[in-house]
Design a protein around this nucleic acid. Structure first.
Lengths: 155, 155
DNA sequence: ACGAGACAGTTGCATTTGGAAGGAGTGCGA
DNA sequence: TCGCACTCCTTCCAAATGCAACTGTCTCGT
């Protein structure tokens, strides 16, 4: 075994993997129980709402929420059918499309927001001091950067 | 919006979400490129190898790798077909089954291990000091505990 | 102005997924 | 010992996923 990653790092990686899965699992469970949108949909709508004009190019959106391109296409298909989002052609690039949140999309996201926040508060905010939260960000951003640059992945 | 989680905690959560997705994505990409088993399979085999006697009850295994019960059943179906794992009835509980790694399973995991370790080293170990890794574990364990206890999820 | 190559987004296909329902076995209280 | 609630694992079904192939558009060097 030529490359050995330290025990501490392995443990950290593993604990992270598990913690995150449980957190997401719990959020999804709570959303489903309350009959709200799924976590994936929530992420899409929130990402759009956070963006300038409530819209984003398909590929930008896919990058941000880490969906495959084809996955996003079909997700937006569904959301469009539900009336949460509409597609809008890009004026300056005829290949491109924007996904745009509709008022209805904003509404359902807002309804789900309460549950997500409550759950996140219980399982995340209480486990982490404010300093720890602040310290975590640059570390995780460094991980992201390394992962992205390690080898380009065609989406 | 009654419950507001702090900006810092939100950023931390988001950065974690993204970092992890990228890391897993990259590991999966590397494994596929090298024509090795998938990350999920790797996790199953490793978890089994780490266990007493190389075996684990189906539901224990499902809990550790955070698979749904039905998902695990089918995963073990596939692995059994490939000869990486066998099922073995539990002697003291006739409902229960063990999944047991075979030598062939150990071999393929071992082959994949090099790639996983190398990738993990590049994107994880380098982004995190040893102290940071050590500090992360209890925090993440606290998250896991909160998420598990927040409300029991039937798998 | 042209062609090669990169890029945006979609679609086809085979595979995988999650949840709810089902069959079998266990354990505990009356 | 009977009954009932619970657990273990599997199966069924509809829905979602990823990859690879494809169309149409842009870019850049010549």
């Amino acid at each position: 075994m030529p490359h050995i990653i330290s025990r501490n790092h392995q443990n950290a990686w593993r604990s992270l993997l598990i913690a995150q899965s449980w957190a997401i699992r719990q959020i999804e469970f709570q959303l489903r129980k309350a009959n709200e949108i799924s976590f994936d949909v929530y992420e899409v709508l929130q990402t759009l709402e956070d963006s300038e004009g409530g819209k984003l190019r398909m590929s930008d959106l896919a990058d941000r929420i880490l969906f495959s391109r084809s996955g996003l296409t079909r997700m937006i298909d569904r959301l469009e059918e539900l009336g949460y989002v509409v597609r809008e052609p890009s004026p300056d690039d005829r290949r491109g499309w924007y996904a745009v949140v509709t008022p209805k999309g904003k509404e359902v996201r807002h309804r789900a927001c309460d549950i997500v926040q409550t759950t996140l508060q219980a399982i995340w905010e209480r486990s982490l001091s404010d300093e720890e939260a602040v310290a975590l960000v640059p570390v995780m951003e460094s991980v992201t950067k390394s992962a992205r640059n390690y080898e380009p992945i065609r989406g």
